[in-house]
Each structure stands twice: as structure tokens, then as C-alpha cells.
Simulated assay, not measured.
Amino acid sequence: MCLAIPACVEEIVSEDCAIVNLSGIRREVSLALMENVEIGDYVIVHVGFALQKIDPLEAQQTLAMFAKMQNEDDPFADN
């Protein structure tokens, strides 16, 4: 099973590299598979590669769903 996560582009490091924010964690990802990525874009990230742009609203909804699933699986979380 593969999991790709929405992330916000915070910095363009080079032509094929960017820093993204994955729910508060900043990571360097490859832009080698994409074109025309700009700061503020949301991209789908899988194994260190940005695969495609995603609508910001859809990205926020997906991240909220991941957070909810994580809290539901945590028996110590305040629900």
C-alpha cells in the first residue's frame, strides 16, 4: 500500500528541489516530476517526490481526515 500526503511548498531550493511543510515538519522533496511549482502550492508527496499539485481546500480536508484517523486510533487522545 502506498501513501501520498499533501504538503505546502514553503521554499524553492533549486530548479528540481523544494522545502515543503508536512503538517509542521519541513522536508526537502524533489520536483523532478513536476513543472511550474510555486511557493504556496500544495503538492502530493510520496517517497520524497512531489507528484502533482492539489487544490488547497482538498489538501486541508485530506490533512484533517488524517489527523482525525490518527486521533481515533490513539486510545490516549482526547476525543
Rank of each mutant, 00 (worst) to 15 (best):
I54Y: 05
S30K: 01
C17F: 02
M1K: 10
F76D: 09
A67H: 11
Q70K: 14
I54V: 15
T62L: 11
F66P: 00
G48M: 04
D74V: 04
V29T: 01
I12Y: 04
G48H: 06
K68G: 02
V13Y: 03
Q61G: 08
V43F: 01
D78C: 07
L33W: 07
I39N: 06
L22G: 01
M69C: 10
I19T: 10
N71L: 12
I19K: 12
A67S: 12
F76V: 03
S14W: 07
K53M: 05
P75R: 05
A32Q: 08
L3T: 15
C8I: 15
E58P: 00
E58N: 11
T62C: 09
A7C: 15
L33R: 15
E28M: 11
V9N: 02
S14C: 05
F76R: 09
A4E: 13
V9T: 03
Q52P: 02
E15G: 15
L51H: 06
N21L: 04
E28P: 00
L3G: 11
I25T: 15
H46V: 02
A64G: 06
D41A: 06
N79M: 10
I19L: 11
A64K: 11
V37W: 03
I39P: 02
A32S: 14
G24I: 10
A67K: 14
A4V: 06
V9F: 08
D41I: 04
L22T: 11
E35Q: 14
N79Y: 08
I44L: 15
L57M: 09
V9S: 03
H46E: 12
P75D: 10
N71C: 03
I44S: 13
D73C: 11
R26Y: 13
A67M: 08
I54C: 07
I19D: 03
P6V: 03
L31H: 06
V47C: 05
V9P: 01
E35M: 09
L22A: 07
V29K: 01
S23H: 05
D16L: 01
F66H: 11
K68S: 13
L63R: 06
I12R: 10
N36F: 09
R26L: 10
V47R: 10
K53H: 09
I44Y: 01
V29P: 00
E15I: 05
E72G: 01
L31M: 07
Y42P: 00
E72C: 07
C8R: 15
